[in-house]
């Protein structure tokens, strides 16, 4: 099996889908000729292979990039556009939230918008709060969108292929820290359905529900707790919309304890939705209050000690789990 970073796995998925379907094209800022000539980045080398008609470097125009995807998709193409950093999504958000998410509904189901918006995200890159800000709850809140946040390169490859083949608009959010951690990725052409969560580690005492980069934090914490005789089940959501309620509820009914872990800030974060789901449907099986481990409600700070303070870490998770084990 090959070892790839998430960026390389994304690139493999893009490349294979572009070879498979000529209606797939990619567009975005610096995706052809970028300022970082780094082979680990997701679109590196695509321009050389597929040419400027299918790998479209755009001006710095996020609304136009997202509108390009909306318009091209209703005409039968399968655009995969990139928003360079999650905070820049706000400039594209009219096109994504008011248009991509709603136009199928407004057509009475006559039109479809098979587009993918890839968004790079995550703190830990020393770029401050206008480059780092996890906004997945914004898009997960909008009916009409599917929201994918892979936590491993292998998942990223299979999920992105499905996202490109999906007839609905998909927001595909990639944590940039995962672009620098190689992990095993199957070499064959495979897809992973959008929806099902994946139990990355089975356990009996407590359920941790998480996604994206925090999966690694959860697994590391679970490994340490295992040595202390505490059995943690780690549920990787992989997609926030559709949400795999069954897997979450089944796990919580088994363990009786839930900790939700995400890098995004707490208030209005998607963790609250998981907590509410469990409160509504598995309240009687809970042995302890639900615990949330998230970033504090602050912008991502620049200075390294403060930035690291912002990102939930293993110790936060271990302490959180111990606090609900009683």
């Amino acid at each position: 099996m090959q070892n790839l970073t998430l960026g390389e796995a994304v690139k493999q998925a893009l490349r294979e889908e572009m070879l498979r379907d000529e209606n797939v094209f990619v567009a975005g800022e610096g995706i052809g000729v970028g300022i970082h000539n780094n082979p680990k980045l997701p679109t590196h080398g695509l321009l050389e292979e597929f040419g400027p008609e299918r790998v479209k470097d755009t001006p710095v125009s996020e609304a136009a990039i997202a509108g390009l995807a909306v318009g091209a998709s209703v005409m039968g193409l399968r655009p995969v556009v990139e928003i360079m950093f999650n905070p820049f999504f706000t400039i594209a958000s009219d096109q994504i939230i008011n248009h991509a998410a709603k136009l199928r509904y407004l057509s009475g189901g006559k039109s479809k918008f098979p587009l993918v918006v890839r968004i790079k995200t995550g703190a830990g890159i020393g770029a401050g709060c206008q480059h780092s800000h996890n906004l997945e709850a914004w898009v997960a809140h909008c009916p009409g969108l599917k929201v994918v946040m892979p936590g491993t390169p292998a998942d990223a490859k299979g999920l992105l292929k499905t996202a490109i083949r999906d007839d609905n608009p998909v927001i595909f959010i990639e944590d940039m820290i995962l672009n620098f951690i190689p992990m095993p990725v199957p070499e064959e052409d495979y897809t992973i359905p959008l929806g099902p969560a994946d139990i990355k580690k089975p356990g009996d005492d407590v359920t941790v529900v998480t996604w994206s980069k925090m999966l690694g934090t959860a697994l590391n914490a679970a490994g340490k707790l295992e040595q202390q005789g505490i059995s943690v089940e780690v549920v990787d959501l992989r997609t926030l919309a559709p949400l795999d309620e069954d897997t979450i509820l089944k796990s919580v009914r088994k363990t009786g304890r839930l900790l939700v872990l995400h890098e995004a800030t707490r208030t209005g974060g998607f963790g609250g939705e998981i907590a509410a789901l469990v409160a509504e449907k598995a309240f009687n099986q809970l042995k302890a209050p639900v615990k949330r481990i998230t970033a504090p409600d602050i912008p991502v700070p620049y200075s390294k000690p403060m930035e690291q303070f912002y990102i939930p870490n293993e110790d936060n998770v271990i302490n959180g789990i111990k606090s609900i084990l009683g």
Binding site: A64, L68, A72
Partner: peptide, 8 residues
């Protein structure tokens, strides 16, 4: 911007 997409 959507018209740019359909024209594209």
């Amino acid at each position: 911007p959507i018209a740019v997409g359909t024209a594209f």
